[in-house]
Design a protein around this nucleic acid. Structure first.
Lengths: 149, 149
DNA sequence: TCATCCTAGTTCTATAATAAGACCAGATCG
DNA sequence: CGATCTGGTCTTATTATAGAACTAGGATGA
């Protein structure tokens, strides 16, 4: 590939975000950690990803501060991967992807997993974009202003 | 790579979504179209992506119903790329990525573009996850239920 | 304690994807 | 009608990935 282009210097936050987690596996790894998988082997088995690729991804995500290693919670000498605050900030990205997938990528009647509020076991609401004063916005009511702040 | 693994059959909506738009360029292309770039040349120049890669991505996104070609709005015989309803559904994914990028990937004082409500020119509000009855939820109050409905 | 299994990787090789640029046909412009 | 623009395709060098084999150190159990 002659070295994949880097987007880390862009002044578009979307490009920078994708520079960190926009590759083929990172968001799935992060989803798995949100879902309670913390050990290398658990994630590797769940995703079916090559171990070398998983090791490289985990290393990259650690270096970039999305996740970190911690001593295993089961008392053994192994370590496990947990999300940092920055990593937990990706929750809404994953929720948005999930809701888009649910809406457009399943046939009627086809089963899929569901994100629920743990306490009530009820499905969460659809994400909505709001204006600064609380009105609902659609994509055609917004625009991107270059180089602000 | 011995053929990249496909995630299209997964029953996790996040995985299916990433199967469609989880590669290195698709979301940036879609962002560009949201930002008003509709012609091949505009997108190619803005992203700096190889033309062959862009052509392949546009073809793939068309086949999957995320975007489609339409006659050029400037009257010439060329065509342009526009988002379908399914494609416009990705707006919140891009907003979520943008807000994460803004929050975690810029130094204090570093400039970046801004998403505003066009009519008022005011910054949009941060996305929030809500329960079915309108309470704010954080990631630790939710869980994924396998194989529902 | 020692043999064995498990865990979390690293290393290796083939094949696929990408970047970069040359090339090209048809549309457009002057 | 000649020059240039548009929207690609094709080619090549290089990188990334999948898949499998290998390994070192920890855990397990007899």
């Amino acid at each position: 590939m002659v070295k994949r282009l880097s987007l880390g210097e862009e002044n578009c936050p979307v490009a920078r975000a994708l520079d960190v987690i926009g590759d083929w596996w990172s968001l799935l790894i992060i989803r798995d950690i949100f879902d309670g998988l913390h050990r290398f082997g658990e994630i590797q088995e769940n995703l079916g990803v090559a171990k070398g690729v998983l090791a490289a991804r985990l290393r990259n995500l650690s270096e970039r501060g999305v996740l970190e290693t911690a001593p295993a919670s089961d008392g053994t000498a192994y370590s496990e991967y947990v999300l940092t605050k920055k990593g937990r900030g990706l929750f809404l990205v994953i929720v948005a992807l999930r809701q888009w997938g649910e809406a457009y990528l399943y046939e009627r009647g086809e089963k899929h997993s569901l994100l629920v509020e743990t306490a009530t076991n009820r499905k969460v609401a659809a994400l909505q974009l709001m204006s600064s004063d609380g009105r609902e916005l659609t994509c055609d009511k917004t625009s991107v202003q270059k180089l602000a702040k």
